[in-house]
Design a protein around this nucleic acid. Structure first.
Lengths: 247, 247
DNA sequence: GCCGTATCTTACAAGTGTAAGGATCAGCGG
DNA sequence: CCGCTGATCCTTACACTTGTAAGATACGGC
């Protein structure tokens, strides 16, 4: 408890690694990842740039850190529902979190040091799948497929240059203008007869693909038949334990 | 045709928008997207920075341009196969191209002006789906699901800090070191008993998820039942009613 | 009052996009 | 052959911004 403030500045021990990361996340959200500089982050905290170096080693640590902060915001799978519901909730949460911090996906490409929240998250997902009966190999398949879909969807969502219907109409007009003689006819049709229809929102596409994958995984889990390809995948026997080192 | 070179420099009319974009792509591939500066690109062409401004308006035009160059490298769907094969070939090509230029995904987030190759690509994909009998809405679903998966997979592929088995082992060791008392047990199991097994390559996961989506789409196309959302769907009669593909 | 630490001030060297104007060239009419 | 013209390329320069090193200063707890 700060006894006698006297000054308008925040009390002395206000700075901390956590507060710095939180400020960096806020700056990235508001002004884009390129605006995350030591000075801007410090300014956001009412502090000078050099002060940050008493709590973080350098800028890279901040970048690694905020990626982990984002992963920490994703709802962890809890075991009270069936695996499908759990995975769906996790996916929906991940989508919302990543949509709130779209720069996080771009950062992933350049970061090579997963933080504790990230590892915890991955561990929890794999654990849920294993508990549901997926073999190691099938859990890897499921994990990869689900996360790929989630990441890619968010990427497209933040890529498509329209978030409001208004922006979409502007964008559509721009595209239509670039079709002097009916080039891109199918694109035009999709925009006019689908995307511009009242009530359309790209975000709604998410559940379709998600359920497509979840249902496919369920089929792979229940019926050991060939869920994909028509061939190779079976989840019985050989897959059940650690794969025999070939040769 | 340069008549008398005389000098060692490239002939006069060597520069062009295309050559500039190609050089920018090369710089991004070799040194990362952050190294794509006017000076570096110019240097790669044996030219000074300001010379570029005679062929491109500014740096943004270069960034928009190289994203479009990448999309231009993706194999366009051709109509000689069934839609599933076509989509699979397209997806595999897209994955390879994007893996070759991993910075392109990060750029997408900040670019708002799709170029002609991008539009042509999207148009072609939608056209293939429509020709196969997908309704507009279902084509939108399919397009979204497939591209989300492709983008996300590439993102993960370039995110995972290992491309060679050697790097993977280093990485695994690092992670294992961070588990003093068996935190992340499932992650540890997956790394030890799966990812580190001989012959494992993350890239192989691609086809599993891809075929999962393609098979799901096929089911949605054949039996127009509710493929997503509802319970574990089956292919029998009950679903048969559903929205008739708009005539 | 003293001490260690958290914070601020100052500074630097490097790198950025690009504006303004000078140099160099090919192709041309004389 | 000459010199002109207009495009293309180079040189110089500017105004910023970046991460962070070094040292001075202010503060809370003893």
């Amino acid at each position: 408890m700060p006894s006698s403030p006297g000054r308008q500045r925040t009390p002395r021990t206000s700075l901390s690694r956590e507060r710095i990361l939180a400020a960096a996340v806020q700056v990235a959200d508001e002004r884009g990842i390129a605006s995350v500089t030591m000075r801007k982050v410090a300014e956001h905290l009412g502090v000078e740039a050099m002060s940050l170096y008493h709590h973080v080693a350098n800028k890279d640590e901040i970048l690694d850190g905020i990626v982990d902060v984002v992963f920490g915001e994703i709802e962890l799978p809890v075991g009270q529902f069936d695996w499908k519901t759990t995975m769906r909730r996790r996916a929906v949460s991940a989508r919302h979190v990543l949509a709130r911090h779209p720069w996080a996906l771009g950062l992933m490409e350049s970061r090579r040091h997963p933080g504790p929240s990230t590892l915890r998250h991955h561990d929890s997902v794999i654990g849920s799948l294993r508990a549901a009966g997926f073999s190691i190999g099938m859990a890897a398949h499921a994990f990869s497929a689900l996360d790929s879909y989630i990441y890619g969807f968010v990427l497209q969502e933040s890529n498509l240059p329209f978030r409001t219907t208004e922006e979409l109409e502007d964008m559509a007009e721009t595209i239509v203008q670039r079709m002097p003689a009916g080039v891109y006819p199918h694109l035009a049709e999709m925009i006019a007869d689908h995307a511009l229809q009242p009530g359309y929102a790209y975000g709604d596409e998410f559940t379709f693909g998600l359920d497509l994958i979840l249902d496919g995984l369920e089929r792979a889990l229940l019926g050991p038949g060939a869920p994909a390809r028509g061939g190779p995948f079976r989840q019985t026997g050989a897959d059940r334990s650690a794969p025999p080192p070939p040769g």
